[in-house]
């Protein structure tokens, strides 16, 4: 089932774009205000959006706020002046952006909150289901180890995502914990999400419990590398399930080697394609709540109700590594380096 999730996502996104394309007039303009291009991933998103928009015969324009809320406000004024049909915004600051979003609405332009939420009822919010990432991690680990001592290696204390992920994990584990099947033996935040801090925390956890740890829920792949290093030193790597997220190349390799159980992957190409298709639909006059996949979301800070598309992240496990290779996210050589034995996709 999970094995096909990746393929299903790809085809799903294509269906959305395909259904909105024919019969509609081209020549619309889709604008994007990026918060930064410092991180490699946003370029991936941008390329995906641009490809879909231009394939539909529409025009793509964008601006880069370079990590500044002030510059982003100025950028959006500039974009409004070019009279696009839809403006997508990756907000640098989700509160400071609100006046700019109001200006977009006042100019009669549709807005999309891309990946980062801002709470404006007129905007369409498109992102991955972040609490869902925590749920998927816990589900995969629970499947591998239905009972025993669990260690929780959480991210940085200052990052709300660290807590969201933990909430998602707890939702899934609640029943097993209440019945006493699963026990929380260590739970630590990791300064700066740093792998070497995660390694030290895991070492201390193993020391204090005398190695009686049966599963580890690490909140991302970088920290999972530290956790696996700590487990390897105790000869436990491969027998203790470990979670992670991001689809790091090194993590996928660990999944193939069997030392990490799951890496939850948020494919930003999918996110870009879905958002571009939705933007084209909005530009062509489709109401936001009539776009396929749209549902109501009110899980933000202020509980504002917004139309939203929440994409399901993909768990990469030993069973579907072949799909990650097929999707072009990682080469077979990278995924399968040093793998011995029978791994689907590495043969």
């Amino acid at each position: 089932m999970i094995r096909n999730a990746l393929i299903a996502l790809t085809t799903g996104a294509l269906l959305v774009s395909a259904s909105s394309l024919p019969a509609m007039a081209a020549g619309k303009t889709i604008a994007v205000s990026w918060k930064t291009f410092q991180e490699e991933r946003w370029k991936t998103d941008a390329a995906a959006i641009k490809a879909v928009v231009e394939a539909a015969g529409d025009k793509y324009i964008d601006s880069d706020a370079q990590g500044s809320a002030q510059k982003q406000a100025a950028d959006i004024e500039g974009l409004i002046a070019q009279k696009p049909d839809v403006i997508m915004v990756v907000a640098f600051d989700s509160d400071a952006i609100l006046p700019s979003i109001a200006a977009i609405s006042n100019a009669g332009i549709k807005s999309i909150a891309y990946d980062v939420q801002f709470e404006d009822p007129n905007a369409l919010y498109i992102t991955f289901d972040n609490v869902g990432v925590g749920r998927i991690m816990a589900k995969e680990i629970l499947k591998a180890k239905p009972a025993g001592n669990y260690a929780f290696i959480k991210g940085d204390k200052g990052d709300p995502n660290a807590t969201f992920l933990f909430q998602g994990q707890m939702e899934v584990l609640k029943e097993a914990m209440d019945s006493g099947k699963v026990k929380n033996v260590c739970e630590t935040f990791t300064d700066g999400w740093k792998p070497d801090n995660a390694q030290k925390n895991m070492e201390q956890c193993l020391t204090s419990t005398g190695n009686k740890v049966d599963a580890v829920l690490s909140e991302n792949d970088g920290m999972a590398s530290g956790v696996v290093a700590a487990l390897t030193a105790q000869g436990l790597a491969g027998t203790v399930p470990v979670s992670g997220q991001d689809g790091d190349l090194a993590a996928i390799n660990r999944v193939a080697m069997g030392t990490q159980t799951v890496s939850v992957w948020k494919n930003s190409v999918e996110l870009g394609k879905t958002a571009a298709a939705a933007a084209i639909a909005l530009a062509n006059g489709t109401a936001a709540d009539k776009i396929p996949g749209v549902a109501m979301f009110d899980g933000g800070k202020k509980k504002v109700k917004m139309n939203s598309i929440l994409l399901a992240p993909t768990p990469i496990t030993i069973a579907n590594i072949g799909d990650a290779i097929a999707a072009g996210h990682i080469t077979k050589d990278q995924a399968c380096a040093g793998v011995k034995g029978d791994v689907m996709g590495c043969k």
């Binding site: 700066g192 740093k194 070497d196 696996v228």
Partner: peptide
């Protein structure tokens, strides 16, 4: 020790 190199290693 980490069996990996990342740009966060020496942070």
């Amino acid at each position: 020790r980490l069996n990996a190199a990342t740009n966060a290693l020496g942070l």
